[in-house]
Design a protein around this nucleic acid. Structure first.
Lengths: 217, 217
DNA sequence: GCTACGATCTAAACAGTGTATAGATCAATA
DNA sequence: TATTGATCTATACACTGTTTAGATCGTAGC
């Protein structure tokens, strides 16, 4: 056999060059794969290296450490998440109640469709909020919610948040976040007519719950 | 000197016997210490062994593996948790709304006062729900909530849950669980006048949020 | 009292992890 | 063309959970 050595990472390429060329992106992709397959806790940096076809020390040149790579994944997640929330908010038009409802729908939908990413984004200590602009990007999602709550509370954009408005904000956030967390933990599968997977949860349980989204009082 | 050798683990005892004598309990205690100090992810079985003064292989005689030990900790947690919910429910008397409020208060209070334990109890995959009677004990807490929701929905104990009642249940659970999760993640610290630690959260933020606990509609 | 046993422990080993170090490779710049 | 800096490998270290074989010791049965 006339040795044509295979580059492990590329589909059909020449010789496995010493330099990967696209490692950073592939590490991120591998990380997303892994947390999807094995959960956030199942992630290992060495496995990501393996899937990218490099040595365990290679990632250090692109990310400070394992948390760095996970933080990058979270960053991308929060970007998509924020976009989804903004789009939902706009679907709500001028009705604050509808804005909150659409946001809640989008919040949980994102969580159930991107379970691993969502768990990572809100896991305690898994990623470093000082990584790049992760903190700001996460804050952006928060602001979308705050904006709708301000409208629902009759506040103008420049006004300070009142205590009541802040209570409304926390209540709205809590209910959708709690629902997402419980659903992802399988906590909503057991009782009564559960089962049916994420689809059933989104289609039947979620609307039943979002009916109770707190409005201004 | 009439040799009174010190047993490393016991306060003031004789000789460090080959057999520990109280290992199971001390492992549980060590595990609770560790998750409190280092978080659930910071737990290692070897560290627990070290603190109990035994070799890394010793725990295997009392727990199947690391998850087994954590499951035991979760089991004890759910027992206390269930007791707290039941006591709160009774404080609510005959008013379903008050029962739900007291339960919510107790739910979040438990979470903030036992952060590590709570995170463990609701962490995905950290403990084995088939461990001993962990599943049933966890279910017991759920039943306390369900019972109050039945009352709030005008259902008798024997009645099947209606869709609406189930929505009410999920909404109540979601809001308190979400609040607890967000608070533990420090998510409620940043904005506006936050800070002040868990005490401030319990005393000011929580009531503002629980005002919005969904009632029957 | 003795013996045998079963429960409980230790010591040592194995495979896996994250990460630090030193050195190899290679594109691009001076 | 030589050098430099970015990117990679090989190696090593200190951890981890868990398994194995063997040591210890309370106690049940004789």
């Amino acid at each position: 056999m006339n040795s044509v050595k295979i580059k492990p990472r590329a589909k059909t390429k020449s010789k496995a060059p010493y330099h990967h060329g696209d490692l950073r992106k592939q590490l991120v992709a591998a990380a997303e794969e892994i947390i999807l397959e094995r959960g956030v806790d199942g992630f290992t940096l060495r496995e990501a290296s393996r899937r990218a076809g490099v040595s365990p020390a290679a990632p250090a040149h692109h990310f400070k450490d394992a948390r760095g790579l996970l933080s990058e994944v979270a960053l991308l997640g929060f970007q998509e998440f924020g976009d989804a929330l903004i789009a939902a908010d706009q679907r709500g038009g001028k009705d604050p109640q509808k804005r909150l409802y659409e946001q809640g729908l989008a919040y949980v939908t994102f969580a159930l469709k991107n379970p691993a990413r969502f768990q990572l984004m809100f896991a305690h200590g898994k990623c470093d909020m000082r990584y790049k602009n992760l903190g700001e990007v996460a804050e952006r999602s928060f602001k979308v919610l705050e904006s709708a709550v301000r409208a629902a509370s009759g506040l103008k954009p420049a006004d300070d948040m009142t205590e009541d408005a802040y209570g409304l904000l926390m209540a709205n956030w809590s209910i959708v976040h709690g629902f997402a967390h419980l659903a992802l933990g399988g906590e909503l599968d057991t009782p009564a007519g559960g089962r049916g997977g994420k689809g059933a949860i989104l289609k039947s349980f979620l609307p039943l719950t979002l009916k109770h989204l707190p409005a201004r009082r």
